[in-house]
Amino acid sequence: MKRIEVKLALPVVAPLLDVIKELADSLRKNLAAPLELKDLDPEFREAWTDELLSTQNEEVSTLLALFDDDFFGDGVVAFDENNAEIIVRACAAVRLRLREKYLKPLGDEALESGDLDLMTLDEPLRKAFMCYLFLATIQELIIQHLDESILGA
């Protein structure tokens, strides 16, 4: 089984985990990507939303579980075919929520390019944007190294 291990800098990543945990709470009852299908039957819509929320919560819990006691011991997180798809989706959900909650003032162009001077941002915004970049990095790593595992799943 293909597996990648990534050693992270604890002093950099640990403060970002508080942001992820806070967003995980706000994702408990809200879909990261809004359901735009206007003409769904109301009962059908409710069933969809419940199922999507349930999956989303499982994904985000799996992401948070990466940062357990072992992580705080050695700073290593590991991805393989068992968690790659779940983690890459959880990262997408949290990044979408980051935009909704913190990053809209930065503008969509800056979010798409990632081209921002962190030092010009105030502390909460800087932390949120660092979290946004951190999660994108995890996604890129997984897609680059485990794309075939996800496609084969």
């Binding site: 890459v88 979010l111 996604q139 890129e140 897609i143 496609l151």
Partner: peptide
């Protein structure tokens, strides 16, 4: 529909999957 958040590589992977 477009969103400014999801990575291009991610969207490509989803379409393939």
């Amino acid at each position: 529909l477009n969103d400014p958040v999801n990575l291009m590589s991610y969207v490509v992977m989803v379409f393939k999957k």
